[in-house]
């Protein structure tokens, strides 16, 4: 991959996905794109990129973009968040919602471990939650929807007891039981796209996504999340993530890492 190819790749990821590909990632790019080139029938990464630059076919472009996103996730990552979600947020919100239904969005769900962790918490707590999970990567969504996890994936973050309660062996993998699979609805979504409908959520999790976002586009994504969040809803970021520099619309919840609620100034338009 030439430096010129890499510069163009950086531009593609920033403009289409808001994803900041660090300057030191050229070797990672070659490594991640090699399987894409093979799958798409090209002799090499270079040949694939030349074709893409000359004739930017959407499907090939997205295949390239997807391969460069950060798929890192595991069950109950930063465990405290899931205990707060199931033990405090769900019961409190459920009490003040019609029929006790709580609307939850896992934004940037990768291969689904976060969404299934939320669903296990809701089902165990006996709270009715509609859980929507989205990611930019169609491949990640397909895997998430399958509910299949390798022995490595299933053991990362889940105790054996929890694993036995919610998953069953399926050849070399573990498959979410139907009750768990049915509790999450997966869909592809680009966080750069402005909301086009009135769907609103009580809890939005967008964890370890903004850290990889181009600083110029963080504000836009946070604004979209804010428009999707109920006025008394909660936004949950990664434990170490902060958005004070990107928005005036949220304020951090004291003592709870990663939790944000709407600032009073952001509530005015609802009045």
């Amino acid at each position: 991959m030439t430096q010129d190819d890499f510069d163009r790749l950086q531009g593609l990821l920033a403009s289409r996905a808001g994803f900041r590909l660090g300057r030191d990632r050229i070797h990672l790019a070659e490594h991640r794109l090699a399987p894409v080139a093979r799958r798409e029938g090209f002799d090499s990464v270079d040949a694939m990129l030349q074709t893409l630059w000359v004739k930017p076919v959407a499907s090939l472009g997205w295949a390239v973009i997807e391969a460069m996103l950060n798929p890192e996730t595991w069950f109950r990552r930063d465990r405290a968040v899931f205990d707060t979600f199931a033990g405090e947020l769900l019961p409190a919100i459920s009490r003040v919602r019609p029929g006790g239904r709580v609307q939850v969005w896992s934004a940037g769900c990768s291969t689904g471990q976060e969404a299934y962790s939320l669903a296990m918490g809701a089902l165990s707590a006996g709270v009715t939650a509609d859980i929507v999970a989205t990611d930019l990567s169609q491949r990640a969504i397909d895997k998430a929807r399958s509910g299949l996890f390798s022995a490595f994936e299933i053991q990362r973050g889940l105790s054996a007891r929890t694993m036995l309660d919610w998953f069953e062996p399926a050849e070399d993998a573990w498959s979410a039981v139907p009750r768990l699979k049915d509790a999450v609805r997966f869909a592809r979504h680009n966080l750069l796209d402005a909301p086009t409908d009135g769907a609103r959520f009580d809890v939005i999790l967008c964890r370890n996504v903004l850290a990889d976002v181009d600083p110029a586009q963080r504000g836009q994504i946070v604004d979209h999340l804010e428009r999707r969040l109920m006025d008394d809803g909660v936004l949950i970021l990664g434990a170490e993530e902060r958005i004070e520099g990107d928005t005036m619309a949220f304020r951090a919840v004291g003592g709870r890492k990663g939790l944000y609620v709407k600032a009073p100034s952001a509530l005015s338009r609802a009045a």
């Binding site: 465990r79 053991q155 990362r156 054996a160 007891r161 036995l164």
Partner: peptide
């Protein structure tokens, strides 16, 4: 688990699995 084990790790495992199990 019924015999009193606190958790159960299927081999092969790696550092990330063991760390998350010990943390659980």
């Amino acid at each position: 688990l019924g015999a009193g084990a606190d958790d159960y790790v299927m081999k092969p495992f790696d550092g990330e699995i063991l760390q998350s199990k010990l943390s659980e």
